[in-house]
């Protein structure tokens, strides 16, 4: 787009000012995140209900998750939130190279998270914990009086794969968005005056992190001794 003087302008013609444009875009992403909260909310509701109905089976199933890998992944994601903040910081100051660097770092950390997650999924597959005809479950907890009902434990894995799968899908979309931003940043599209997409994508990324911050204790930590 060009204005009357021929210089490139990033102000869309239906807005009256840059301020109005930035405010609109920011409010837009916040409202989108509200819908995301409600979207994940349905699954969290199901989790809460079934966990309270079958606490024993859920605790037994939870023992099959690796706290070590979960913790590493939590650290990776918190780290990626930091790199996103640095990207926004760089964009606001018009630092091109540093913006590209921090966007790239975010992508690397996102991929690392997905790699570890894929490894965990593969492990569950070998253990026969992926719900389906080959599902087998053994209660591996020590010192319990009665082994947990495998069918009830299976519900835990329905929710585990449902919730972490949906979260991983959001990560993949996020990485796609950040790749686009990085290409645009290399081409010098973002300036000190206009860089709305960076904080907008950043807010989305923080939200996806935050979902994991809830998933980690709910799935990995509760009921472990």
């Amino acid at each position: 787009m060009s204005d009357s003087t021929g210089a490139t302008t990033r102000l869309a013609h239906w807005y009256r000012s840059y301020e109005e444009q930035t405010e609109s875009v920011t409010l837009g992403i916040w409202l989108f995140l509200v819908t995301e909260v409600m979207f994940f909310g349905g699954l969290f509701m199901a989790y809460t209900l079934y966990r309270s109905l079958n606490p024993e089976a859920f605790a037994a199933a939870s023992h099959h998750l690796s706290i070590f890998l979960g913790t590493v992944n939590t650290a990776v994601l918190i780290g990626s939130s930091f790199t996103v903040v640095m990207a926004v910081w760089s964009a606001e100051r018009g630092k091109q190279k540093s913006l590209v660097f921090w966007l790239g770092a975010t992508i690397v950390l996102g991929l690392a998270f997905l790699g570890i997650k894929a490894n965990e999924y593969a492990h569950k597959w070998h253990e026969g914990l992926v719900p389906g005809p080959d599902f087998v479950f053994h209660d591996t907890r020590e010192g319990v009086h009665a082994a947990a009902d495998p069918n009830r434990a299976r519900m835990f894995f329905h929710l585990y794969f449902g919730m972490t799968g949906l979260h991983a899908l959001h990560m993949i979309i996020g990485i796609g968005v950040f790749l686009t931003l990085m290409v645009n940043a290399i081409r010098g599209k973002y300036t000190r005056q206009w860089h709305d997409p960076i904080p907008v994508a950043g807010l989305y990324w923080h939200f996806v992190d935050l979902v994991w911050i809830f998933l980690f204790p709910l799935l990995y930590l509760i009921g472990r001794h």
């Binding site: 209900l49 079934y50 109905l53 719900p131 009902d149 009830r152 519900m155 329905h158 449902g162």
Partner: peptide, 20 residues
């Protein structure tokens, strides 16, 4: 995918579907 979130065989509750 046979992720039976509302399936009573796995402790699921069809009424939860109605609530949601």
């Amino acid at each position: 995918l046979h992720l039976g979130i509302f399936d009573p065989a796995y402790g699921g509750d069809p009424i939860l579907f109605q609530h949601l």
